[in-house]
């Protein structure tokens, strides 16, 4: 083995644990927390937009419009670097959580809204004919079916989010990508380190895709093939 290869291998092994640690400590929690909160926000936004409360529905539409029409990176900068100038200072991690949650909430609400609309009217009517209220029908009849329809597109959002969290590096959060930058700055092997970072993202996303597959299979139990 040449000295060069040996050195690269050494750096690769030495940096693997710190990178993985940054991933498990920041990237993964940031993803999970933002997605969970974002999903709740998405469901609420979708329901509000489908409700009879005109003013609230308009507000929800406005929110989705803003978030979808502006870059996530710019949103993160506004939250982290912009808000302090009006006296609102938020730490890097919560700032990132807010940014990603708002993003998942906006895109997710469109997915969920479409899924709810796609459930045939007959399902509502069958539930109403049993004397169920609108809310009960939503909760027990419509949302479970909408969930099945939403799994593939929401999984997409989830996997995108894993990768998007690398943007948090720009607001000083030492998640996996920023850790990679830091390591690169000391060892001067950008190709190696960034490929290693990419590899760990790939591992995370592969695991998640497998989980998505199982979730889809679970929902198929009541669906004709």
């Amino acid at each position: 083995m040449s000295d060069r290869t040996e050195r690269l291998l050494h750096i690769f092994i030495e940096s693997f644990m710190p990178l993985l640690k940054a991933g498990l400590l920041f990237t993964v929690p940031l993803t999970l927390i933002s997605f969970a909160l974002g999903l709740a926000l998405a469901i609420a936004t979708a329901l509000v937009r489908l409700s009879d409360f005109r003013a609230l529905a308009e507000l929800a539409r406005f929110y989705v419009w803003i978030i979808r029409g502006t870059p996530l990176l710019v949103q993160l900068f506004i939250i982290f670097y912009g808000l302090p100038s009006i006296g609102i200072t938020i730490d890097a991690f919560p700032a990132a959580v807010i940014g990603f949650t708002l993003s998942v909430g906006a895109y997710g609400s469109e997915i969920i809204r479409a899924a709810i609309i796609s459930i045939p009217r007959g399902q509502w009517e069958a539930a109403y004919s049993l004397g169920q209220t609108r809310l009960t029908t939503l909760r027990r009849i419509i949302l479970p079916q909408a969930a099945r329809v939403s799994v593939p597109p929401l999984s997409n959002s989830f996997i995108s989010l894993v990768k998007d969290t690398s943007l948090a590096a720009t607001v000083t959060l030492t998640e996996m990508f920023r850790k990679g930058q830091e390591i690169t700055a000391t060892v001067y092997e950008p190709l190696l380190i960034y490929c290693e970072v990419a590899l760990i993202y790939l591992m995370l996303c592969t695991v998640l895709s497998a989980l998505q597959h199982r979730l889809e299979r679970y929902y198929e139990r009541y669906h004709a093939k």
Binding site: P120, G122, E125, A126, P144, Q145
Partner: peptide
Amino acid sequence: AYHLFPHM
């Protein structure tokens, strides 16, 4: 068209 609940 029956309209049974497919998830039940």
